[in-house]
């Protein structure tokens, strides 16, 4: 009896409760019939084994009940997934290498063995993170779109108007664009986070005074570190945006809207971070002023620079949104 229960459990374990009970009941009755109608002289146990072997691999029986196969990442996205995974992992490894290289400049006594060990462990954990997050993003895409595909199949019939337009050069996205963006974004963020955590003293202006090095930090490192999850969110949203471009390879309406949405969110997050006054070392302008010794209004200039950074950041993002609006919506409408 235990074997039968184990078999039934193996078949039904992943079904929702109601379905599970029904299948259990029916399968049990069928198995008992198979045993009962085996008129050979074998022991009961032998008959049980024979019946279960006849039913075969419970995973396959479960698939038959389900009527469809289940995937974590299905064949539809697998190729794209492998490509993005390779790019992201490679870029993370590259980024961490650069970050540690920069760090070695700020380390007084370089211990090769220690640096080597740190390098290996950072690369290992960085690659694991990249692998995990890329996989999670794709699992979410698969989940949402598998449902969507089924619904489309059921509800809509295909006709000639559903044929995609021949690609127009202006709305096409060359594959090199998203790949370069993924590499650049990944390297930028892994270098930035790498330095933030292993050599935050690098975010500073250095002066040499009477043979001694003076260091004036630009940021309040603890506040900057507090934004860690924000940086990671911006990073993954940016990667997600590029994955959409890799998938569609053109500025169609859907890709355009998703991109604009993501750019808006990341830009807002970015502006909130940059305009946070507690992020910037309040003593930075006065310290600099002491060093340059002049009548030059450095604190005012510094405030201007900070405002210009914000303005520049907003202009770049708005520019990108306008360009996508033009390609994705205006051009597509004109072509139809």
């Amino acid at each position: 009896m235990e074997l039968i229960n184990r078999y039934i459990y193996a078949v039904t374990k992943s079904f929702p409760k109601k379905q599970k009970l029904e299948i259990e009941e029916e399968l049990k009755a069928n198995i008992e019939d198979m045993i009962e109608q085996n008129s050979s002289n074998y022991s009961h146990e032998e008959k049980v084994k024979k019946a279960l072997l006849e039913l075969g691999n419970p995973e396959i029986v479960a698939d038959n009940y389900r009527g469809s196969k289940r995937f974590l990442i299905g064949p539809f996205y697998y190729e794209l997934y492998l490509m993005v995974l390779k790019i992201v992992v490679a870029a993370v490894v590259g980024g961490i290498s650069i970050a540690l290289f920069i760090k070695s400049f700020f380390t007084a006594n370089i211990d090769i063995a220690n640096i080597g060990l740190e390098y290996l462990t950072s690369i290992f954990s960085g690659a694991m993170q990249a692998f995990a997050w890329t996989t999670i993003v794709f699992i979410i895409i698969e989940r949402n779109n598998a449902k969507l595909r089924d619904e489309l199949k059921d509800k809509e019939s295909w006709d000639l108007t559903k044929l995609p337009l021949l690609p127009n050069k202006k709305t096409q996205i060359p594959i090199s664009e998203p790949i370069a963006a993924i590499i650049f974004t990944t390297i930028f963020f892994s270098v930035f986070l790498g330095i933030l955590y292993s050599a935050p003293e690098a975010f500073a202006v250095y002066f040499e005074k009477a043979g001694e090095m003076m260091r004036i930090p630009i940021f309040e490192i603890d506040v900057l570190k507090g934004y860690r999850s924000w940086f990671i969110a911006i990073f993954f949203l940016s990667i997600l945006k590029e994955i959409f471009s890799l998938y569609y390879r053109k500025w169609n309406l859907k890709n355009s809207l998703v991109s604009i949405f993501i750019i808006t969110i990341t830009a807002i997050l970015g502006v909130i971070i940059i305009t946070d006054n507690s992020l910037w070392n309040p003593n930075f302008p006065t310290e600099i002023l002491k060093q340059i010794q002049g009548s030059f209004d450095f604190p005012g200039f510094w405030l201007n620079i900070r405002n210009w950074i914000v303005a520049f950041f907003i202009i770049i993002n708005v520019g990108e949104i306008l360009s996508i609006l033009y390609k994705g919506i205006y051009l597509n409408r004109k072509l139809q």
Partner: peptide, 23 residues
């Protein structure tokens, strides 16, 4: 019922695995 159908089809020369038929 499930198993009687397997036997019935078997008698008529159509073999079908129970693991396919029940689902």
């Amino acid at each position: 019922y499930g198993y009687s159908l397997v036997v019935l089809l078997e008698e008529k020369g159509i073999s079908i695995e129970p693991g396919t038929l029940y689902p």
